[in-house]
């Protein structure tokens, strides 16, 4: 009963989605514009490109297995690296007013450089390949993590620090048990922002210099005037973006449960 109600309620919320899809289908079929293929054609092309493989490969094609994990790997490598470096630097900035004064203009400048502008530079430095893409991603997404971690570490509750001092916690313990956890909600906000940025930079870096990955497939489809393939790649990237964000939110809810509830009750 409850399941049915829930389904009906979800259907009530989502009713516009099928309406839009059908309208799009009808409009594109009537217009017969090759630039705007109908959604069914796009879906068929996506199926052909990625999801028509053998059952033992979970129906994924060679094309899917070659490109999707590669792209995801670049996103995660860049994201993790940026997360570690950004958090470490950010906490140093947050705990040392002096240090932050010295490097603040550099950070403000680095943050303002549009990351794609650095692509040719990394391309010259590393040549085509994963290194160049990961470097672009790290440079482009580190700023929100760094600034948020700094902000979080700067605003640790004074009483938390005094309690730690009164019980004589060592520097290391203070860092890992008090400063890091209390900056965590902020760091997570930064990590979430950078995850969606990482997706964008993965795509642009694969469009500019790559021989595989979803971005490369997109470029390939564009060059061969495969319009359903272009649309399909965009849809696939949208789905990936949605899934990444949803997975991140689920993880955050688990890890930061103390933060949500503690702030509600006090």
């Amino acid at each position: 009963m409850g399941a049915v109600m829930r389904f009906l309620r979800a259907a009530g919320r989502l009713w516009l989605v099928p309406v839009v899809l059908v309208a799009w289908e009808v409009a594109t079929r009537m217009a017969e514009d090759i630039f705007f293929p109908p959604p069914t054609t796009i879906a068929a092309r996506m199926h052909e490109l990625w999801f028509s493989g053998p059952a033992q490969q979970l129906w994924l094609t060679e094309g899917a297995l070659d490109n999707i994990p590669t792209s995801l790997g670049r996103i995660f490598a860049g994201w993790l690296l940026a997360g570690v470096i950004g958090t470490a630097l950010g906490i140093m900035l947050g705990r040392s007013e002096r240090f932050s004064q010295f490097v603040d203009p550099l950070i403000q400048f680095g943050r303002a450089i549009p990351p794609p502008a650095l692509l040719p530079f990394f391309l010259a430095l590393f040549a085509v390949g994963a290194q160049m893409q990961i470097a672009t991603i790290v440079f482009g997404i580190i700023w929100p993590i760094l600034l948020n971690a700094g902000d979080g570490a700067r605003h640790v509750d004074r009483l938390h620090l005094e309690t730690a001092a009164a019980f004589g916690l060592s520097r290391g313990q203070r860092l890992t048990r008090v400063i890091l956890p209390s900056a965590m909600p902020k760091i997570f906000a930064g990590l979430r922002l950078s995850l969606s940025l990482a997706l964008i930079l993965m795509v642009i870096s694969e469009l500019v210099g790559s021989t595989n990955g979803i971005g490369f497939q997109l470029l390939d489809a564009q060059r061969s005037y495969d319009y359903p393939g272009v649309w399909g790649s965009i849809v696939l990237l949208g789905v990936l973006g949605y899934l990444l964000n949803a997975a991140f939110l689920a993880a955050e809810r688990r890890i930061l449960s103390w933060h949500r509830t503690a702030n509600q009750t006090t």
Partner: peptide, 12 residues
């Protein structure tokens, strides 16, 4: 401390 809610660490 007086302010127990801030002196205890909410993440532990």
């Amino acid at each position: 401390f007086q302010d127990y809610s801030r002196s205890l660490f909410p993440w532990m």
